[in-house]
Every structure is written in structure tokens, then in C-alpha cells.
Design a binder for these strands. Structure first.
Lengths: 186, 186, 186, 186
DNA sequence: TATGAATGAGAGTTCATTCAT
DNA sequence: CATGAATGAACTCTCATTCAT
């Protein structure tokens, strides 16, 4: 409970001001306790960051797994994955930005754990594309590794600009990107 | 000269360790002078960051302008712009990463200057797409604003993973992305 | 307790060497703690100065008030006020000198607070003189405002030269100044 | 010429911001030269302060000497001396405040030089009072040393509050103080 | 569980001063 | 006469962390 409140306050502050620029003091002030309390729940500031990042990437991996085992075609899977990432912005934008931006502050040990998960996410995605190619649903000239980087770049970038209260909805954006990918812009 | 050396050392360190994690001491140690010297050339650490970011974005804007005024069709322009960003990785990768990651440490005043330039870059790109649509070269169903975010996301992301000494060249990557965009993956 | 020790050490050092010339390091060295401790108790060096000045001027105001409400004639009040300021030298000389000399290092906000109190002290003094004139005890040709400045200048100056271990006592000095003021030197 | 400009700029800045708070850079900026130039004319910042203080106290001593050798009675001399100090405010206020406030920043060697002159000024004043007493012009019960401190305190204090553009002129103020001293306030 | 006092290392910045030109 | 580059020591302040209670 208290730990969860701390995580939440930290995500907000880390996103707003950055990990290094946020002091433990500010975190505990936000929820009205003292610094000692923080160290009762976390061994270090860095461990808190690891916690946040791990929670986020595991959330994503879980969602991804659900989609990948559904019984739908690959184009549909592509759409569902893109939509998943984009719709996640509504609730996880801050976590996501903290994830991408602050990862570097982790120790090597923690970093390796996180990177392994991140690579897992990417390789699941890539595997789906490879199967889609094999199944003849996607063009066989494609390089699935590069394609994966491209698609993830496109979707991840939307954490920085997409406004889910704007004129275009998450569904529309996901649809737009999927169409563009599938059919091209010509 | 000295100022240039400082900028170079800082770009390297800011990319490697992050802006906040890099101390002035480390910067000056890197080039064998003392902290006083740093403050002879820069008013503050933040001003140095502004300098770095401004130099980078203006470099990009210059390159972009050259391409946009060439007498070639829009598909070709698209390719050239993508290639430009990707080939820039070889010399500007660190600057680019510093640009995207550390921008937030600028003061409001400096941030506005930088953001204006960044938006300029994006809106030039978007305008090119709009003209391409109008000319019938690109599909008229597209939303040029979202498309711009998508393409820039895809290309900018490659600053984080693309290795110009790897098995695939910049030309190939640019070609791959352009093909994918133009023709789709189906 | 710790805070009080810091205030005391600071008053001593500020008087001896000046506010700007005294470093936080010197203050904490004086009482055997570390710099961090200082900032646990004070937000800034300047806040400490404000604390010192406020304590001093409020001490004076308190003493002044006591005297002014006593049931004695105005000449006696004049003597008592002069004596109060001079006898205060024994315990408050350093605070007083810090007050007069270092006030300028306060921020505008703090300076206003302090100046208001200082003016209060002066205007109470002046009011007493005015009443003494009205009561016919002092010469009606006098300008109470200027007279106030003159008397306070005379007494405050003694913070710089008067030695309470010297051949002349505080009582004598106060008596001397009061006589001089009341009867003139002719 | 250049040296004089530096002195003038420094007096202004030292009075406005304080000796320690004024950097050599600010002084040279004020007159449009560079730091090297400063060190061509002065050996150190402190020497500049000594220069300023010496010039001021010697100016005062000169004026005092003129008055003391005039052929007038002691009451008149008293008035003339008080008037001299007060009228000096118009042109020398800043120098005077720098003198009283910043003296402490001098090295022992310089400080001794200055203090000797200051004591000279005081003892000339005191001697005049003693002669006035001997001549029967002032009350023989007075202690001339203390009286001197009192009068100088009163007049010197006016550097901090007297405004020569205010409703009361320097002549009036000097007259007021002299009257008060001579005849008392009863 | 939670507090609050204390630490100590290091941060960015300032500045009087030097010196080759 | 004057400059501008460079120094180095000191400064105020921050902060993650520890620990007795």
C-alpha cells in the first residue's frame, strides 16, 4: 500500500522532472512521510527505479502474450499489438517514458534484467512477423529484424506526442499505422 | 578551439553517462584543463547543453533544406530525407541522442528556442508529404501529420540501435524503410 | 539546541570576520559537526542571518516596551532607554554589530521584515520624545525625528568603542550621555 | 585618469553591493576595460580599498585642519566641524560608508595606516573640546573623550539616513545638532 | 513501522590573480 | 598599456544514505 503509493508518486515525479532531478525528499513529501520510511521499503533509489521499470515491462509482456496466443491472422495480430501499445499510453504513459528515458541509471545487474525482458518483447514481436511472412501474409522480401525496430520506433515515439484526449482516438491511430504498414502510402 | 574541444568532450560524456550524471569536473578532466576554464567559455552547464542541441538541430535543418529544394519527385525526396537522417548517425549519433534525451534540462527560454526549430523540421517534412499527396504521388487518404510522427519515430529510433559498422549499410536501411513505407509489407 | 549552538557560533564569527567572509565550513567546524547538519537546520546562510537579526531586534523591542510603559517621567525614560542600549552591549554587542553591518546581505523580503522592526524601535523612541515635549519636559523647539536619529547614532556608535571592562561603567556612560543631552555642554 | 575612473566606479559599487560582493569583473565592466587593466593600476583588490579609504580620511583630515586653525571661538568651531562632516555627505557619502563598513577587509598593515589617521581625526576633535573646556566655553564636568565619541557617533550616523535633498538642509541639521549639544534639550 | 538527526561526498559556480602576448 | 586565456581554491548548497530510537 505504502510501497505502491511511493511507486506512483515516483513515476509521476520521474516523468515530470527526471530521475536524477527528483530527490527522495520530494517523493516522500508527495505522500506525507519521511525519508526513513522510504528506506524501510526500498534499499535504494535505484531499486525503486528497477521496480518501476520491471513492473512496466512485465505488464507489456503479459499483454503481448495474450494477444499472441489468440487465434487470429497475422495482420490482425499486428493491429492488435500496435493498438495495445498505443492504448496503453492512457494509463502507462508516464511509466513508459520513465522506462525509455531513465533505464540508464540502473546498475549493470538491474540493467541486464530489464534489457533481457525488453529484448524478449522485441523478439516475440519479430517472431510473429516471421511467422506472418512464412504464412505468406507478409511480403517475403522483408527483413523482420529491421521491420521490428521500425514498427516499435513508430509506436514508442507516440508516447511523446500522442494525446488521447485529442481529435484522433487510439483505435484510429492504431488503424492508421497498421494500414500504412500493410498497404504502404502509395 | 578550446570551446570546440569542450563541446566534443561533453557530447561524448553526456551521451555515455547522461547530462545530470556528467560533472563539469569530468568534462574538463577529459581535455586536461581546469573548471575555471570551462566557465571562461560557458556561462553554465546548461548553456553548453543548449549550444550542443542548437548546433545539432541546425545542422539537420540545413541538410533538410538542401534536399527539399532539389528537383526530384516526392518518393525520391522521402528516400533522401530518410537516408539523410540515418547516414547522419555515423557522425551525429551522440549529438542526436543527447538532443532527444537531455532536452528537458534546458531552461524554458532555451527550450522554446530548441522546440521551435524541432517543430520547424517536422513541419517541413509534413509539408513535403502534403505536396506529395496533392501531386497524386502518395495516397490521398493519409493524414500527413500522423504520418510524419510515424516516420520520424521510425528513423529517430534507429539512433538507438543502428550500427553503421554492422551487416546492413545506411543506404540499405534507408531503402528498406522507404520501400516499406511506399509499398507496405503485404 | 544544535540550532542555538550554530546561531551562537555564527554571531561570533560574523562579528569577527564578517558575514561574507565566514564560510559555512567555519561555522560547523566551530561546533564539530558537518555541513550537512547546517542545512538540516537552516535553509540557507542568509536565513541564518535573518534569524540572528530578528532575534536581536525583537529582544531590543521587548526591552524598550518594558521601559516605555513604566510610570516615570520622560527624562527618566530617556535615561533608562539609553542605559538599556548601552548595558545591552555586554551581552549583545556581537549581535548588534552583525545587525548593523550585515543587514544588507538579506534578501528584499527578509530585509523588509527587519527594517519594519527597526523603524518600529525608532518610532517608539520618537513618540516618547514627542510626549516629553508636549508634557513640557523637553524644549518645544526640537525636531523629534532628527533628535531621535542623533541620540540613536550616539548610542549605537558605542557598540564599536565602548568597553564594559574599562574604567567607565555602563551606568556612568548612560548618565553622562543623558546629562549631556538634557543640559547641554555649555 | 583611468585609475581615477576605477576608484570612482569601485566606490559606487562597494557602497551599493559591498566590497566582498563586488567582483573585479564588475568594476572593469562598469568602465569598459578588462581585468588585466585593473591589475596594471592596482596590485590587488585590497589595495584599491586602501586607496579609497586613505583618500577619504585624508580629505576629512584636511578639512578639519582648515577649520581648527581658523580664528573663531570653540562653539563656532564645533559648529563648523559638525557642518563640515554633514555637508560632506553630499559628495562623499559613498566613500564614507565604504570607509566605515569595509575597513575590516584591509590587511593588518593597511588597517593600521587607516586607523592611525582615523584616530588622528578623533584626537584633534577631542583636543578642540579640551581647549574649549579650558577656555571656560564648555562645561568643565565633561569627559572630552566620551563626548567626542558621542558627537562623532551622532554625525557619522547621518551618513545612513540624512538626505541632502530632503526638507531640511545641511546647515539646519548642523545648527540643530550644535544647539542641542550646547544647550541641551530641556 | 516510522522518525529525525547527522553524515560526507560531490555538485555547479565564482573570482582574485597570473602571465604571455 | 591593455588583453584574454587559464588557474585553483574556495564557496554555497544538495542529497542518497545511515542509524539510534
Amino acid at each position: 500500500m505504502m510501497k505502491e503509493k511511493m511507486r506512483a508518486a515516483s513515476i509521476y515525479l520521474f516523468d515530470e522532472k527526471g530521475y536524477s532531478e527528483t530527490s527522495i525528499q520530494e517523493i516522500v513529501d508527495e505522500i506525507g512521510v519521511t525519508k526513513g520510511t522510504f528506506y524501510y521499503y526500498f534499499n535504494s533509489k535505484q531499486e525503486l527505479l528497477k521496480d518501476i521499470n520491471l513492473t512496466y515491462i512485465q505488464f507489456l509482456l503479459g499483454k503481448q502474450e495474450e494477444i499472441l496466443k489468440e487465434n487470429i491472422n497475422y495482420t490482425e495480430k499486428l493491429y492488435r499489438l500496435i493498438y495495445m501499445v498505443i492504448s496503453t499510453i492512457k494509463t502507462q504513459r508516464q511509466s513508459a517514458r520513465v522506462f525509455f528515458r531513465e533505464m540508464r541509471h540502473l546498475s549493470d545487474e538491474h540493467l541486464n534484467i530489464i534489457k533481457r525482458k525488453r529484448n524478449e518483447f522485441r523478439s516475440h514481436f519479430q517472431k510473429m512477423l516471421e511467422e506472418g511472412i512464412e504464412a505468406g501474409e507478409f511480403n517475403s522480401n522483408l527483413r523482420p529484424d529491421i521491420l521490428t525496430f521500425g514498427i516499435l520506433g513508430m509506436t514508442n515515439w507516440s508516447y511523446y506526442w500522442f494525446n488521447h484526449e485529442g481529435e484522433i482516438s487510439e483505435e484510429e491511430l492504431a488503424k492508421f499505422y497498421t494500414d500504412m504498414l500493410v498497404n504502404g502510402i502509395k
